[in-house]
Design a protein around this nucleic acid. Structure first.
Length: 264
DNA sequence: GTGGGATGGGCAA
DNA sequence: TGCCCCTCCCACA
């Protein structure tokens, strides 16, 4: 379900609810063989990098979670709810519980494996320690379309299909434009925009990218059909110029853009 | 009621 | 490149 904004929110919320406590851990429907190793241990912290989560129980005892397309957490106050669906991992203390379903990966990493993962992730707009300069340098050398490069987690991390479409629209850049033809100023602008939009989405628990002046009707709260300029708006008129929003397959994912606002 | 698509990425081939 | 993990929602009948 998530892009980086939701991953970082999970990290913050799960740390607030569970870190510093001895936890009960189990895996009612399997898929996570080592739950007994964790049961009764103290969760030290919850880390988020890009779309990856790490639940740190010890130096070589880090539960790596990648939600992929279908994974999701459910959260709540004790008592535990009845078991439902394919429940891969469940953690709880006296007051709070979290449940994990459908993740692409949920397994124990040692320190070395965790470090190797972080080493191959690009700059994350949601992290204060992120340095985007290497990403800019790589993009400026590549013929590959900027729409593909923005999604490459080795270049940037945490940006998914929604932010790709919306960041490129807000920058008025055609997703098909080669990376090397995107100026440094444009790349800096995209990064700055991501550093504003992604934390907002984390707080709001939804991705809103349209500016108030561009919404077709000034209503409060923002209606669902108004939150994106182009993402999933194919065959609908652009809020800004009225042209019909297009969509196309790009690297196995669907990209959306305005052929008039992003004609370059 | 049904079927297709979706915020992701690893894997086999 | 195509398939898979597994869940929800929407368009369409």
């Amino acid at each position: 379900m998530p892009e980086g904004n939701e991953i970082h929110r999970f990290a913050k919320q799960h740390a607030a609810a569970l870190a510093g406590h001895r936890l009960h851990v189990d895996s009612p429907n399997g898929g996570f063989p080592d739950a007994t190793v964790l049961d009764g241990r103290t969760l030290k912290s919850v880390e988020a990098y890009g779309k990856h989560l790490g639940y740190v129980f010890g130096k070589d005892l880090i539960v790596h979670v990648h939600l992929g397309m279908y994974g999701d957490f459910w959260e709540g106050q004790m008592p535990l709810p009845p078991e439902k669906g394919a429940l891969r991992l469940r953690m709880w203390n006296k007051t709070d519980w979290i449940e994990l379903r459908g993740a692409t990966d949920c397994s124990i990493f040692d320190e070395e494996k965790w470090a190797a993962l972080l080493a191959r992730l690009g700059a994350d707009p949601l992290r204060d320690d992120a340095d985007p300069d290497p990403a800019f340098a790589v993009i400026r050398k590549r013929k590959t379309a900027i729409g593909l490069l923005l999604m490459d987690q080795r270049i940037f991390s945490g940006i998914g299909n929604i932010f790709r479409a919306e960041l490129l629209y807000r920058a008025r850049i055609d997703p098909m434009r080669p990376g090397k033809d995107v100026s440094l100023a444009e790349l800096r602008s995209i990064w700055k925009d991501a550093c504003k939009l992604m934390p907002e989405a984390m707080e709001d628990r939804r991705i809103v990218t349209t500016r108030p002046k561009d919404r077709p009707h000034a209503r409060r709260p923002v209606q669902d059909e108004e939150v994106h300029y182009v993402y999933r708006r194919h065959n609908k008129p652009c809020f800004v110029c009225g042209a019909t929003i297009k969509r196309q397959e790009m690297g196995g994912r669907t990209v959306y853009w305005c052929p008039q606002c992003q004609a370059n």
